[in-house]
């Protein structure tokens, strides 16, 4: 090796600190340069993000008006009011279902199950997170739309979305309760509290910020989903009037319009929908970060 590099080998027992052998120069130089070059890889991550956001914004903003955002006119090609309001309604319904399913499940896993049973449940939650969204969309389609006969409607989409979001809330609720310091749990139970009293009176206030975080996180992930929505709902130009009416969704709007000719109002609509989704997702992520930094400090305080 040393000869291949064309230099003398470092000698052992060498007393000089000013080693100038080729091998040493190579080792030190390699370390120095890799330390300078590797950080450049961040360009790979940062450039696409900036480019994507800039591209979407620059195509969405020039034609964006307040009317587009609020108009629910089914005959206008450039009205975003229906998808916006529909998305808000779908998200509300899906989040409510997912919170009920995920929150209680997660708390029960953290507080009442034996370690072995909890491990099985946690593994299945992780499996669910790893399930491709299109598979979940198929489940929703075959179960809700076909088997239950709901058709491509609000309720079918909302339930599919809820199932998609549930494991995220579940995991965070579980995590929030398992990361409460042991001594607090023991102090509560030791002073005569029943387990459910501990959960409600002691655990819940401590875990609340992180659970809220989990809900926001699940919403950020849910609002960006496309496949389960497109498979279980049908594009509607009007607002849903009930659980069994057709519905629209922002990501579905992007999906339906992305291949329209450039310059058309439809493609502008796709970009505007994309911008809104990105803003919501990034906004929720920022909120999550802020809460989680504060929560971490609070949790550390509990350990002292």
């Amino acid at each position: 090796m040393a000869n291949a590099l064309g230099g003398a080998k470092e000698t052992l027992g060498e007393e000089l600190l000013y080693d100038r052998s080729a091998r040493t120069r190579w080792r030190l130089g390699f370390d120095k340069w890799i330390g300078r070059l590797l950080p450049l890889l961040f360009i790979v991550a940062i450039l696409p993000i900036l480019d994507l956001v800039y591209y979407v914004a620059s195509n969405a903003l020039p034609t964006l008006t307040w009317t587009i955002l609020t108009s629910t006119n089914p005959y206008a090609p450039d009205a975003l009011g229906v998808p916006i309001i529909s998305t808000a309604e779908m998200m509300t319904a899906a989040t409510l279902v997912a919170v009920v399913l995920g929150l209680f499940g997660g708390v029960a896993t953290a507080e009442f199950l034996s370690d072995r049973t909890a491990a099985i449940v946690r593994t299945s939650a992780n499996m669910l997170v790893g399930t491709p969204s299109v598979v979940l969309g198929y489940m929703g389609y075959f179960l809700f739309c076909v088997r239950f006969g709901w058709g491509l409607t609000f309720i079918a989409g909302a339930f599919t979305l809820a199932f998609f979001m549930t494991p995220y809330i579940f995991r965070i609720a579980d995590l929030a309760f398992t990361s409460i310091p042991r001594h607090i749990r023991e102090a509560a139970l030791g002073s005569g509290a029943r387990p459910y009293q501990y959960v409600v009176r002691v655990g819940a206030p401590i875990a609340f910020p992180q659970i809220l975080n989990g809900v926001f996180l699940a919403m950020a992930i849910g609002v960006g989903e496309t496949a389960p929505i497109v498979l279980t709902t049908t594009a509607s130009k009007v607002l849903p009037t009930g659980a069994f009416s057709p519905v629209s969704f922002l990501t579905a709007t992007i999906w339906e319009n992305f291949s329209q000719p450039s310059g058309s109002p439809e493609i502008a609509l796709a970009f505007q929908a994309a911008l809104l989704v990105v803003i919501v997702v990034v906004g929720l992520n920022v909120i999550v970060r802020i809460i989680s930094a504060r929560y971490q400090r609070r949790l550390e305080g509990l350990f002292q």
Binding site: L16, L17, Y18, D19, T24, R27, L28, D31
Partner: peptide, 12 residues
């Protein structure tokens, strides 16, 4: 030799 000399690399 001063090990804190700027010419000296800590690795050595």
């Amino acid at each position: 030799q001063n090990i804190y000399d700027t010419q000296v690399n800590p690795v050595m």
